[in-house]
């Protein structure tokens, strides 16, 4: 499974302050730690970044890729910031991922960028009309995003469908619907569509000690249904990811498998 390290987010105080001061140290430390913990891509969440988005995304990507040989997931609603980031992204270490488009026409330009810069892109299965009610509605929106992607010239294998994970503390019934959606998404195409979740959203608002438990168990269930990628804390989920790989027969078991 592809792990997209979530820790470089403007929501975290330490990261926000480093972004403001353009202090590379903390950003690079966090990027390296996520890489060492098993991340295959680093998410750079700069928020809406209305004022200085372009400059900030450029700075984030070059700062990350200076020390970590991984592609970056460009996480913002700011179209211009995404474009500026894609221009400086070093594709030598893998292709970037735009986070995200959706079935909201305001987000369609993101598909244009994906096609123009040969980037991969996340399709969040929400439309203008608010949150999807169940797995079927998520799949219906997914199909529309797929049609839109083809229209814009984005190959379907470059599209990661995101069923939108909701908080278990407020929307308990959606946890299972998300798992079902991951299964349904794959059936929308042959070869199966790729899928991604923002994992830790399941435990958002829960007590701190419960969050890793919820995240890890939810990940196991999603993995069983064939989830391709998760935006998550690589350190927190590393043992689960390795154990899933062993149980699913993707890695050969040895007593020290967790240390590898």
């Amino acid at each position: 499974m592809l792990i997209i390290g979530e820790k470089l987010s403007i929501i975290a105080k330490r990261v926000r302050e480093a972004m403001m001061k353009k202090d590379k140290g903390p950003i690079q430390d966090i990027a390296i730690f996520q890489w060492k913990s098993g991340a295959g891509m680093i998410d750079a969440n700069i928020g809406p970044a209305e004022d200085n988005g372009e400059e900030l995304m450029e700075w984030m990507i070059t700062t990350i890729q200076e020390v970590v040989k991984l592609p970056v997931c460009l996480d913002t609603t700011n179209y211009k910031a995404i474009e500026a980031g894609l221009k400086v992204h070093n594709n030598e270490w893998g292709r970037p991922l735009i986070n995200s488009t959706s079935n909201d026409p305001e987000r369609f330009p993101m598909l244009e960028l994906a096609a123009k810069y040969n980037s991969q892109i996340i399709g969040l299965t929400v439309g203008k009309g608010g949150l999807p009610a169940d797995a079927e509605e998520r799949a219906a929106i997914a199909a529309e995003i797929m049609a839109r992607a083809s229209e814009y010239g984005v190959p379907l294998e470059d599209l990661y469908l995101d069923p939108l994970v909701l908080q278990i503390s407020t929307s308990q019934d959606h946890a299972l619907k998300v798992i079902q959606a991951v299964k349904m998404f794959q059936e929308l195409n042959d070869p199966p569509m790729k899928t991604v979740v923002g994992l830790s959203n399941i435990s958002n608002g829960c007590p701190k000690e419960l969050r890793p438990i919820l995240n890890n168990h939810f990940l196991s269930l999603l993995a069983y249904e064939g989830l391709t990628a998760a935006i998550a804390d690589p350190h927190e989920i590393a043992p689960t990811v390795k154990t899933i790989d062993v149980i699913m027969g993707r890695t050969l078991y040895a007593h020290s498998y967790l240390e590898m």
Partner: peptide, 14 residues
């Protein structure tokens, strides 16, 4: 034993 073979390689590299 393939699993012990892998394990021994890990121990040696560690």
């Amino acid at each position: 034993d393939i699993n012990l073979s892998k394990q021994l390689n890990i121990l040696i590299t560690q």
